[in-house]
Amino acid sequence: MTVVAVIVTALLVAAGGLTLVRIIRGPSILDRAVATDVLLAVVGAAIATEAAYSRDATALPVLVVLALVGFVGSVSVARFAARRNPK
């Protein structure tokens, strides 16, 4: 299981790094909102992997909250980006 944990950690760190590059480079606020969503899901996957590795369910309620409220950020950004940048 340790090997799996190391592999998964490396993959998730790479995914999070690529997502951070997209958040920094943009170019539009919507790209950043989408990339933030992906980063949130990567963090959720990391929390689930930690729970699976240590067989410890303490962090699972955090996952529920993340899955429930995670989309609010993207939706609000999309809503207000529409008002600020009319084409």
Binding site: G16, L18, V42
Partner: peptide, 17 residues
């Protein structure tokens, strides 16, 4: 399953770039 899921997360990251 964990490794496959992490690979798909990495695929999403690469796709974002």
């Amino acid at each position: 399953c964990l490794v496959a899921g992490a690979l798909l997360c990495l695929a999403a990251g690469i796709a974002l770039i």
